[in-house]
Amino acid sequence: MAELTFYDILRRPVVTEKSNIMNDELGQYVFEVALNANKIQIKAAVEEIFGVTVERVNTMVMPPKRGRRGRKWYMRTSKWKKAIVTLKPGEKIELFDV
């Protein structure tokens, strides 16, 4: 498999109530990342793209979820990898607060 670029690794920022609180109070930023990206790659990507110092990266794979809409339609979401990136205290990622 071709090597992942930094931009392949970080799919999108996760902006929710919870992530928002983590931004403000813990200096943690949440991303959806490529499933096969590891913590080291994520750290490198965040440091490179946003120009910040990453202290710690936690990752988790979010399980797929199934549901049914009506009698006939089944739907499912695929699994994805979530990364919680803790920055050096005092640093910020601009994208998250305008």
Partner: peptide
């Protein structure tokens, strides 16, 4: 707004 309950959306997210 996805990811937020009503009334819990912060200013910055609204602007964005």
């Amino acid at each position: 707004i996805r990811g937020f309950r009503k009334g819990k959306v912060p200013y910055s997210v609204l602007v964005r």
